[in-house]
Design a protein around this nucleic acid. Structure first.
Lengths: 200, 200
DNA sequence: ATAATTTCTTGATTTGAATCAATGTATTCA
DNA sequence: TGAATACATTGATTCAAATCAAGAAATTAT
């Protein structure tokens, strides 16, 4: 999806509102492995992903815990760091070559200030970030291992194909060994037969 | 804190904006044990807690898992249900006699529509709900048991006095037995000597 | 004040996922 | 294409928290 179409899904903008906004965004291209945001940097922009895939993770004594994936057609940022204006403890790294369009904090704030419609977009984005976050937290805290995997497969079938299994394990808060065993169990029970092509 | 003071902390409102808003809020009083929101009901209001204490929880096969406490000086709602407009799976119950001021969804939307300042409050509330949610999720997912308890004591000393220990256990995603043992460990290590008066 | 109930503690046992370790299978890159 | 590296599976063992089970302490009601 293109940025302009995406913006239009949030609100009815005047031509001027849309033009003003688009003029603030600038293109960036990242190669697989590049960091969109490094640990310790400040998160001062928000980016629309035109194509590609990223992971937001953090390190806890050497281990990398994946918190979130971002893929094409979504806004990406370390939103926690962005909102709290604290140095990021959650680097964001490209898992594929990617093309994104970014807007800096100051320009985004200017949009918010200049236009009620944009202020509304800010609210809607915050609200949906909240819903996503709660949803994920409830999953990880209260669902058992089998449910966690099968729900993930149902909700994010494309990621199964694009992301190494050990990263999915990390995202689902389990070890790679456990994920492998859970997967085996589910396949024996024929619960996920058709969805995991990659490994069949 | 009073509602009016609280609202002023969010933004510079004109007298009219403030009056319009206040006229929408209505007082409610709940007794300990009363439900602010029952399972299956729609969450269609937001309330400011002038005094009292509530828990938001949900049931998973008979067990009650506490997700959040709300206390005086805060806004309360099942925000997930409110935003998704789905029947609540997270009842909210008063843990103490409480006085609250509520505003219904339609009126809140009207404020948002009529005033950019109020739209901004909507954004700020969503943003801070997001920060809280992520913060809590990271705690529960990645901190060990001792850290979970000692952080809670540090951040919410008053709740330790007001809430039965088994509810805190639930909030921290552990069993009451485990919490009891963690507490004992921490006290032996003198890490929390002065903070848990209740049980000393 | 005493009984009843709720909440908390402590010990013994079970359990299921993490860890450790090895082997097998894919991808990547000269 | 073959070697090297990264990733996935499988088995054996360990371990920490859940569960089970009493009993003790605190709170509430009469």
């Amino acid at each position: 999806m293109k940025l302009q179409e995406y913006l239009k899904t949030f609100n009815k903008f005047s031509d001027k509102e849309l033009e003003d906004a688009l003029s603030f965004f600038y293109q960036e291209k990242l190669k697989k492995g590049d960091f969109y945001l490094k640990e310790g940097q400040y998160s001062n922009k928000v980016s629309f992903i035109e194509s590609g895939l990223f992971r937001l993770f953090y390190q806890v004594d050497g281990e990398e815990k994946i918190t979130l994936f971002f893929s094409e057609g979504e806004f990406m940022t370390d939103y926690f760091g962005y909102l709290t204006q604290s140095p990021s403890v959650r680097p964001i790294q490209a898992l594929e070559d990617s093309t994104i369009y970014s807007i800096d904090r100051d320009n985004l704030n200017q949009l918010f200030n200049d236009s009620k419609n944009w202020e509304r977009v800010g609210r809607i984005l915050a609200e949906s970030a909240y819903v996503t976050s709660v949803h994920r937290a409830n999953r990880l805290l209260h669902d058992d291992y089998d449910t966690r995997l099968s729900t993930f497969i149902k909700e994010s079938p494309s990621l199964i194909q694009r992301v190494p299994q050990y990263m999915i394990a990390s995202y689902l808060n389990m070890t790679p060994e456990t994920l492998s065993r859970v997967k085996k169990r589910l396949m024996q029970d024929k619960l996920i037969k058709h969805t995991i092509h990659k490994s069949l």
